[in-house]
Amino acid sequence: MNNTQIKISTKNLNLYYGDNHAVKNINIRIEEKKVTALIGPSGCGKSTFLKTLNRMNDLIPYVRITGDVYFEDLDVYKDYDIVELRKRIGMVFQKPNPFPMSIYDNVAYGPRTHGIKAKEILDEIVKSSLEKAALWEEVKDRLKQNALGLSGGQQQRLCIARVLAVEPEVILMDEPTSALDPLATLKIEDLVHELRNNYTIIIVTHNMQQAARISDQTAFFLHGEVVEYGPTKKIFRVPEDKRTEDYITGRFG
């Protein structure tokens, strides 16, 4: 149990949208090659927190961040080039967002962006990424077709393949199944289960059962704070904090 490595940790992390204190004093240690679920009611800051990890909040004006985020002992906001950081910490979004181009080009987009030009290498990356995302068999005969023609679930797996193609170490997932039907959702969950062998995954979800099914660790966010953080089995069977209990048994507020 003790040989788990800490991949990402935060120290007194705060985030403000203008005057709105959205993330409050977060100290959390995310373990390597584990699935960590972030749960909590809407507007509790879990997605915002997730986006501080790969600095996606940099896009939003009026955001102010204090405290530190460490990715492998280096400060995300001070020691990393943003391109390098995002290459190593990939992100999958709430709504599948494949680019309006072919399936092949979608997956090859990242590697090309990072300077890989050789066709053989790209072919290999595209194939292996699609395989890892459990999509290869479904699309191998139509790689040149537009990605927008895929079903929602396939699009989301394509987005995961696209992230895998740049060989990240951490994958952030922001409610990746909230726009999908139950069957597509289960496929993504299976995939997450597979991926945890090689990647550190942090997933925001509104679906408590999903968190219970796929995660090793769960953090419960409320009003921008982490109320409780611990092994998923414990959180969903015997939560310590009354607020966690109320939230996951649906008697919140």
Binding site: V83, L85, R86, T113, R162
Partner: peptide
């Protein structure tokens, strides 16, 4: 859609790469 830009930036593309690779074609 903002989601295209987000997707590209999250892959580590620069702003210029994002505009050239995703925004302009769309």
């Amino acid at each position: 859609p903002v989601s295209y830009r987000e997707g590209s930036l999250a892959l580590g593309a620069t702003k210029f790469q994002t505009i050239r690779g995703v925004v302009l074609p769309s």
